[in-house]
Amino acid sequence: MASAFPCRSLGERMAMSSFDVLPESQTLSVPPGSEPSPQMPVFEVRDVFYRYEGVTALEGLSLHIGRGQRVALLGANGSGKSTLLRLLDGLCFPEKGSIAFFGEPLNPNRLAQDEFSFAFRRRVGIVFQNPDVQLFNPSVFDEVAFGPLQLRWPKERILQRVSETLEQLGISHLKARPPHRLSAGEKKRVALASVLVLDPEILLLDEPTASLDPQSASQMIDFLVGWRGGSKTVVMATHDLDSLEDIADHCFVLANGRLVGEGSPQQILGDQALLARTHLLHVHRHLHDSGEIHSHPHRHRHCHEP
């Protein structure tokens, strides 16, 4: 996968860095920015093009995400969902078009400024699909403390927040464990904790339930359903149509890097043609007792008793 950053090896990048013990008194206060109006979109994506080594990932994509929305990015593998999340997190930048964060352009120059970068990283968190890339510290405690340390919070505040976050996700007992010794579900929860510790306003999630066993997936869904708090915004890439109505209130459907549909979960789940065209609908085949093979599309509508 290509990186939008200068193509240096990890060793070179590490060699440019330092690993310092944080003095207790050292803090960096993020200057309070002007509070955006409730109507201002969190993200405004305008006519964005992005390519990986010549292969088009996003093509003329435009959309906006409002404050407090819970957005699902739907689409088959390779439709551009993960790329869009990385663009929204300022980890790579569009070749053409623009992305605005609360009206501010999100580009390398803005993110090179400490003030903007600290404020942005404090407010926006991303959980990657593969937790192994996110868990690079030697212990779970260090992993969860990494973000607050980089934002130079005071030591006492870091210890308190890390402890609260581990408790919140039910992983306090894993505190001293090395991340590579954890199960897939535990890794995912630690990855989530490493982001939630900063109490972000906007949470970007790439396939949060991918490769989890049913119980871990269910716990993840329960957490996302419960993580609200009014102004919290969630943007998640997912294939999981079963829990769509629980975790999202708006959906964008992508195919080949283009936006091909949007609407409420009910509208999207009701549009069988759109789901079939974007490879989100699959056909079930059953063998009945009579020996008859019966096939029908797998529809994802749930009905609850009033």
């Binding site: 990890l10 944080l22 970068s117 260090d142 990494f146 982001v195």
Partner: peptide, 25 residues
Amino acid sequence: SLVMSNEVHQAMLARGFRGEAYTID
């Protein structure tokens, strides 16, 4: 490993890494 190193670096940037890493004693 090269792909992973790029992704790890992105994950570090996403959590505020700006070329200096800190630890708690």
